[in-house]
């Protein structure tokens, strides 16, 4: 124990507080522990002995079942096919609109800004049926492309809002200097503004990846064919297939979380930044 730690625990109140914190944290992590322990046991073992028991055998078979027969080997790649294009599309397009809103005075600037901000708070349900009808009319229903376009468009609101506020903090002199040097606006955006905005884009990208990847509602509204579904909708199908076998369902759920958990572990700072950027300036 180093000195500051020793000093911390010298107060009994603080020690008690610390103990409480440990207790709450353990309760908070309980679902994770439950899931991990469940996934490496057999269903029979749990039925026979109850959940709280030392298992007779350990197995990785549930993961294999979920992956192969449960279809996660299809659903998980689908999630990437949908998330990556939507993520790139929304980041690129929102940085265009954010640049216009942040750097130009023109009629309707404020109005457009509020249109974007207001849209971020919209309950998805308001859009559901018209968007369903629109994808159908455009021949995009039950195609991943329809889902990609919708995510791109819907996330524009939040991304434009954040990037616009961030771009406003970039000193105008830098852009002015480039303008005097005869730089075209489009090049200023791409070669000067974009690199300067990278920290915000990184934060936004981690957050948006998680959101789009974790979407469930839109994938069941806009897709019908099981082979096209992302992992969230796939898990719901899996749940229906293996009603009695929770070990497989839970193993599937754990596989489904791997991408976002990895992202969180490596890019935690950006993730948290993204979260707070949205709600507080």
């Amino acid at each position: 124990m180093d000195n500051t730690t020793k000093k911390f625990f010298s107060s009994p109140w603080r020690s008690l507080g610390f103990f409480l914190m440990v207790l709450i944290t353990m309760i908070w992590l309980l679902p994770f522990a439950t899931a991990l322990l469940t996934s490496v046991r057999t269903n029979d073992d749990i039925l026979e002995q109850g959940f709280i028991a030392i298992p007779h055998e350990w197995t990785l078979g549930n993961f294999r079942t979920a992956w192969e027969r449960g279809g996660l080997s299809r659903y998980l790649p689908n999630s990437f096919y949908i998330t990556i294009p939507a993520l790139l599309g929304t980041l690129l397009l929102s940085s265009l609109s954010a640049y216009a809103l942040a750097r130009f005075q023109f009629r309707g600037n404020r109005l457009l800004f509020f249109l974007y901000v207001g849209g971020t708070m919209l309950p998805f349900q308001v859009l559901m049926l018209p968007v369903f009808r629109l994808t159908d009319a455009l021949g995009l229903y039950d195609k991943q492309l329809g889902l990609i376009i919708f995510h791109t468009a819907f996330q524009l609101g939040f991304c434009t809002f954040l990037l616009r506020n961030y771009m406003r903090t970039v000193p105008g002199e830098i852009l002015e200097a480039a303008r005097i040097d005869g730089c075209k606006e489009f090049r200023i955006w791409w070669q000067i503004m974009m690199p300067l905005t990278l920290p915000a884009i990184a934060a936004l990208a981690t957050l948006e990846f998680t959101w789009i990847f974790n979407d469930y509602l839109w994938s069941i509204v806009l897709l019908r064919t099981d082979a096209l579904k992302p992992v969230t909708a796939g898990l719901a199908t899996l749940q229906g297939q293996y009603v009695m076998d929770w070990t497989v369902i839970v193993a599937g759920a754990l596989i489904a979380t791997i991408p976002t958990v990895l992202l969180f572990i490596f890019l935690q700072r950006y993730f948290i930044e993204g979260l707070t950027l949205g709600a507080t300036k």
Partner: peptide, 30 residues
């Protein structure tokens, strides 16, 4: 310079109007 912001806005805004703002209004009709 006056039309520059609109050039930046045109693609994202059209997408946003068609897929978000339009549907929001259309729900009332439906």
């Amino acid at each position: 310079k006056n039309i520059t912001p609109y050039l930046f806005l045109i693609v994202p805004l059209i997408l946003y109007l068609i897929w978000v703002i339009g549907p929001m209004i259309y729900t009332f009709y439906l």
